[in-house]
Amino acid sequence: MAIGQSYREIKIWLSDSACIGLSPVSPELFARSCPRFIDGFFISIELLVLASLFGFVIAIGLAVARTSNVGALSVPAFVYCYVFRGTPLLVQLWIFYFGFGSFGAEGLGPFWLVFRDGYWVGLVVLTINTSAYAAEIFRGGIVNVPHGQIEAALAIGMGWWTKLRRIMLPQALQISWPAYSNEIILLLKGSALVSTITVLDLMGQTRTVFSRSYNLEIFLYAILLYLVLSGSLTIILRILEARLRTPTQMSRQH
């Protein structure tokens, strides 16, 4: 709770200072609704960061299961990816929020804590959706690890887990990272759909501000903020990409 409290305080402080900092250059329309935009901006970042972190972990598990020889693992993983990759994010959000949500507190029991709030439903659905996409991307990486590498790992007596952790996954990630970066940018844009299930993310706040003034200029500010987000994201993903490359390059020098 204490962490939540100080996080909220940091957010308020950041929002205030950003708005004050921007005030000399911001047009009147933006200045009036600045705290709303910045609040929404933070919500979008939170959803993106959390969904991509959880999604990443789940996707790795799914990708390993997909490439497994054991049908009990590969078939469910395939079905999961097929369902969540093959249906629109909007439909998933509405089914989870309005559909499952309509069972209410009695029908859903402890799950109601999650389903009660559009924010958590949004986070769950974005995580599921991105994990299904990313699992396919990582699967592509795993099957493209050179066969010689696997043979070599087996030859020196590596166990399944060691082989996976030290040989397969590092190379699979390296191969699939550019495609995965693309998926994260798509996730950012997809996250705007949570505004339809009452979440006041950047898009939700933008629409609320717009509904008062009907000034299309508002969407221009949203675009700029989204570009700032995707720009920073691209830079972070590039840095990670460069770091992923290092271990194998080092091993080549040996």
Partner: peptide, 18 residues
């Protein structure tokens, strides 16, 4: 305050107990 795209969506959330 929670805002909905349609009145219908707001009714369904009232009934869902949100």
């Amino acid at each position: 305050v929670k805002l909905y795209d349609t009145q219908t969506a707001a009714y369904s959330d009232l009934e869902a107990g949100r």
